Computed example of a mutant assay.
Amino acid sequence: MGLLSAIYGLGLICRRLTVKPHRLSVRVISVGNLTLGGTGKTPAVIAITEEATRRGLKPCILTRGYKGKAKGPCFVPGFQDPEFSIQEYGDEPALMAERLRDVPIVKCADRYKGGQFALNSLPVTAHPSLIFILDDGFQHVRLHRDIDILLIDAYNPFGNERLFPEGKLREPLSSISRAHVIILTRADMARVSLETLTLKVRQYNADAPIFTASHNPSCLAYPSGETASPGMLRNKKIYAFAGIANPFHFRDILISLGADIISFKSFRDHHRYKQKDLDKIRAEAAGADIITTEKDMVKLRELRLPDNICALRIEFVVEDGFYNKIFNALNRV
């Protein structure tokens, strides 16, 4: 381990030793990962929230709102709200607000304070069935959680297995031991065998149940609100772009759908699009349909959009038994 990674690792240890977790008065499910970059946390949070609602619970999401300027704690408004601004709340909270229109979402870097804010702001009648879902929470020390769900990307699980900045690990692999439930995401696109990856995980956590999940294309979503089958992309010439952590995973999904990609452009994760970016994309597409991710589309809503642009919506599809496992465990808390 190099000096910078050693310093980073020492900081992690000090934080764990000095910061005491605070407990909220309602139950908390945390969804997080071990690495920098995307493991599919946002689709997973959306799916778990939807399942909680189907089971009669009242979920409230606590999110950091990365790169959003609003300091919080504050509720994330929907797109229809005149106070909505992607710059204020961040792209991932904006996507969750778009997909989960009746679910309160609180932005605050300190998720414990965010939870207190929600408890003080939401109707008292909601509290008996209220649960908090902590977005990107595996490293968030200040808030106690009742269930810690760890996502591991089967496409690229741990990079070079080194801590940041030498590698992509946010914590050492030994931190896997804290997880109550583990999901191997993008299992359908795994670059190592799932058996090998499972054995690796079991070196650090012998007891947590391990499930597999995939991120499946569900529809093409247009700015108008209309949707279409992703099957219409077969043999269709498209121009695609993405500003996410794993843009080439998005490209691979498009290829799997049979799309004829005439050009693919990648931007940095959380890229803030300007009108000149979109005008250049429109010109380069030269009349071909333009496809991007849902996360990118929410960042484009305040710009002048081409008529032929849409987003590929991805659904988190997890192995049978996962939801019963976490919600039955939650009922025992």
Score class of each variant (00 low, 15 high):
Asp188Arg: 09
Asp153Trp: 00
Leu220Phe: 06
His215Tyr: 12
Leu194Ser: 02
Ile176Tyr: 07
Ser224Gln: 10
Arg178Pro: 11
Ser177Asp: 14
Pro209Phe: 09
Asp148Met: 01
Ser218Ala: 15
Arg202Ile: 05
Val181Gly: 12
Asp153Lys: 00
Asn160Thr: 03
Ile210Phe: 02
Asp188Cys: 11
Arg202Pro: 00
Pro230Glu: 07
Ala179Pro: 15
Gly167Thr: 03
Phe211Ile: 12
Ser224Leu: 08
Gln203Gly: 04
Thr198Lys: 04
Ala213Phe: 11
Pro223Gly: 06
Asn156Phe: 12
Leu169Tyr: 09
Pro217Thr: 03
Pro172Gln: 10
Asp148Lys: 00
Leu150Phe: 04
Asp153Met: 01
Ala190Pro: 06
Leu173Asp: 05
Pro230Ile: 07
Thr212Ser: 04
Ile176Trp: 08
Ala208Trp: 05
Asn216Lys: 13
Leu151Trp: 10
Leu150His: 00
Asn156Leu: 13
Ile147Gly: 01
Asp148Cys: 03
Ser193Phe: 04
Thr212His: 04
Arg191Pro: 02
Ser224Thr: 15
Asp146Ile: 11
Lys200Asp: 12
Pro223Val: 12
Pro217Trp: 09
Pro223Thr: 13
Pro165Glu: 03
Asp153His: 04
Asn156Arg: 14
Ala187Val: 03
Tyr204Thr: 05
Arg202Glu: 05
Ser174His: 06
Tyr222Trp: 14
Ser218Glu: 14
Phe211Gly: 02
Ile210Cys: 05
Ile147His: 03
Thr227Gln: 09
Glu171Met: 11
Pro165Trp: 02
Ser193Lys: 00
Ala154Leu: 08
Lys168Ala: 07
His215Arg: 12
Arg202His: 04
Leu197Met: 08
Ala228Thr: 07
Val181Ile: 15
Leu169Met: 11
Asp188Phe: 02
Ser174Asp: 13
Met189Ile: 08
Leu169Gly: 07
Ile210Val: 13
Thr196Lys: 01
Tyr155Phe: 12
Asp153Pro: 09
Val201Met: 05
Ile183Val: 15
Glu226Asp: 15
Leu151Thr: 10
Ile182His: 04
Asn160Gln: 06
Leu163Gly: 09
Arg145Ala: 10
Leu220Arg: 03
Ala206Ile: 04
Val201Gln: 05
Val181Arg: 12
Ser177Cys: 13
Glu226Asn: 14
Ile183Asp: 04
Thr212Phe: 00
Ala187His: 03
Phe158Tyr: 12
Asn216Glu: 15
Gly225His: 11
Asp188Ala: 14
Leu169Ser: 07
Ser229Trp: 02
Ala221Phe: 14
